[in-house]
Simulated assay, not measured.
Amino acid sequence: MEQEILVSIVLPVLGSEAALDRCVRGVLAQSEARWQLLLSGSAGTRAWAEAWARRDRRIQVLPEDVAGRAAALRAGLVRCQGMFTVFLDAEHVWASDFLALTTAFLTSNTLEDMVCMEARTPEGRPTVPPRPAVYREHGQLSSVLDGEAGLSRNATWYRGELARHLRWGEYTRLAVTLLRTECAELLLPALRDESGALDYRLQARMAAKCAVNLLALSGAVHRPEPATAEQRRQREIDALAVFDEIHRRQWETDRELARLRRERMARIEQRLPLQALGAWCQALWRRVQSPSGPMATDLETRSADRSL
């Protein structure tokens, strides 16, 4: 009898073969074994993916050749069969209990749509600085996992409105974020374009739909591939574009938003020639002055709902 699929894992095959091998071994080591792994990539990486598919029938290689992370996630998302979905990437190696803890949380808390854990560096530092002050509820993790065995007594669960996190950027990594599949499917429109700040953009899309639940335990080790100066610069530009989509011109009256926006601009200015920066700022200013886009409207709707 074929095993039920509980979790669909979408993994773009990008970067090096060594990184892919390390990542897939982390999936195979999961204590929760009811998963499917969808590998999506280009013709140049197909041989790497197919080698893994031959080892385990739960691993599938998508037939399309796609270029870029957003396109790969989109191709995989439409084939997800599990109750839950996670967007993995080859830079992360899961802890062996990542799927067990996150699926247990969403199974125990049927009104929640998403849950995440922390990603950490090989030295043990969180890759995204935690901001416990923005969470409105917290407690012992065991209390929301029906006494899940083996949890540290100090393990903590935090809950808060996702939109409150977005002024600082992403709150964790997509690679350690488990979504109900019907919630993940709402992100398809945001996967049409590539972005160096894709995690931030997708989290902003979720902000109108979900509260964030953080299990304050390490869910993965992050081992990033080397990035060029151009890639780092583009990542900063894309992050500022997302920032302005979310907050629009609130920085004119919100001092903290104004400070955070200045800091983002300063990081870009360090990497852009002055003439190019001026042209880019003019284009961004026209975009900010334009009518509200769907992301800003969604966030305003969520704010209105909370005020009722």
Rank of each mutant, 00 (worst) to 15 (best):
W94E: 00
N109I: 03
W94I: 05
V93L: 05
L106K: 07
L88A: 12
L111K: 11
L101A: 11
P122A: 03
A104C: 11
T110E: 14
W94K: 06
S108D: 09
D97W: 02
L106A: 01
M114N: 04
A95K: 10
A95G: 05
T103E: 01
E91W: 14
V115P: 00
M114C: 12
G124M: 08
E118M: 13
P122V: 05
A119N: 04
L88T: 01
L99Y: 08
P122E: 01
W94V: 02
T110G: 01
H92T: 02
D113A: 14
A90V: 15
R120H: 12
E112M: 13
P122T: 07
M117V: 04
L106W: 05
M114T: 13
A119D: 02
E112K: 13
L99E: 00
L106D: 00
A104N: 00
L111R: 15
G124W: 03
A104L: 03
P122S: 08
P122G: 04
W94L: 15
F98S: 08
S108H: 14
S96P: 14
A100L: 15
M114G: 08
M117I: 02
A104Q: 04
A100P: 01
T110N: 07
A100H: 11
P122D: 06
T103W: 06
N109H: 06
F98N: 02
P122W: 05
S96K: 15
L106G: 01
A95M: 12
D97M: 04
A100C: 09
R120T: 09
H92L: 10
N109S: 05
T121L: 06
L101H: 08
E91Q: 12
E112H: 12
E91K: 10
T107F: 01
D97P: 02
S96Q: 15
A119L: 02
S96M: 09
V93Q: 10
F98G: 04
E112P: 02
A100R: 15
T102A: 10
A95R: 13
A95W: 07
L111S: 13
E112A: 15
E123K: 10
N109L: 04
E123C: 05
F98P: 00
V93A: 09
T121H: 04
D89S: 15
T102D: 05
D113P: 09
L88K: 03
E91N: 15
E112Y: 10
G124A: 02
T107M: 12
S96F: 11
G124T: 03
D97Q: 12
A95D: 13
T103D: 00
A119H: 04
P122N: 05
L111I: 09
P122M: 05
T110I: 08
T110K: 14
P122L: 04
A100W: 10
F105M: 05
D113M: 10
F105V: 02
